[in-house]
């Protein structure tokens, strides 16, 4: 409770209105999706066949997208569905087409497991003092967000997310676009020099550099 008061105090600039804090208990659907998410993760870890594992990551992303939708993060859900469940699954499959399709048997990695458990524990520990989900008094909702809402209204752009991403934090988005560019450059550097031989015919194999060794 002390923490909650502290967060409220941190959000001082706005008068603390006596809002009825809606206790949004976990909805049944959310619990279901979360359980499914966990299950999928465990199955991915246990699968030695890489093909189903790759497909399951798509499923994982879809469930995630569902969760995001429930949390009103429609834009994020949209992205997650398109990238996580769509493109990256295809890319996984493409990558798989050039390697062994099953994982070699490996001894369990205790150090990795320990690291994961520790990280998870830390994360859960960290949630204890978080503002409640949907708490209108949370700093996130009281400090800067009102300005964003007002700003979006002033320029008549209903989707605040777009205004924040493209204008207020437009520079971040430029950065993200450059991240995408970087990924593209990286892939072209590593894989782009290779020629498709079977379908493109003989001609392309003798292009300058031939076997570039990407």
């Amino acid at each position: 409770m002390a923490a909650a008061e502290a967060t409220a105090a941190a959000a001082a600039p706005l008068p603390v209105r006596d809002l009825a804090v809606v206790e949004l208990g976990p909805l049944p659907l959310e619990v279901l999706l979360l359980a499914l998410l966990g299950l999928t993760a465990v199955v991915i870890l246990r699968t030695r066949e890489l093909f189903p594992a790759a497909l399951l990551t798509g499923v994982f992303s879809l469930i995630n997208a569902g969760l995001f939708t429930l949390m009103d993060g429609v834009d994020v859900a949209f992205t997650e569905a398109a990238v996580g469940a769509g493109i990256s699954t295809v890319l996984f499959l493409g990558a798989l087409s050039m390697m062994d399709r099953s994982e070699r048997q490996r001894p369990p990695r205790w150090r990795a497991l320990l690291a994961v458990v520790l990280t998870g524990a830390a994360l859960i520990y960290g949630t204890f003092d978080m503002p409640s989900y949907g708490d209108p008094q949370a700093p996130v909702h009281r400090h800067i967000a009102p300005q964003y809402l007002a700003g979006a209204e002033a320029v008549h752009i209903p989707n605040v997310v777009t205004v924040v991403l493209a204008s207020y934090r437009g520079y971040d988005t430029l950065g993200e676009t450059v991240v995408v560019l970087t990924a593209g450059v990286g892939v072209v550097i590593l894989l782009g020099g290779r020629r498709r031989r079977r379908s493109a015919g003989v001609g392309s194999t003798i292009e300058a550099g031939g076997r570039d060794g990407g």
Partner: peptide, 22 residues
């Protein structure tokens, strides 16, 4: 916990919540 991403702004708002586990 702070509702901001700016370093200086966050630095101003952090002391109030420094004792939280988050």
């Amino acid at each position: 916990m702070t509702g901001t991403l700016n370093v200086e702004d966050m630095a101003q708002r952090l002391p109030a919540v420094l004792d939280t586990r988050t």
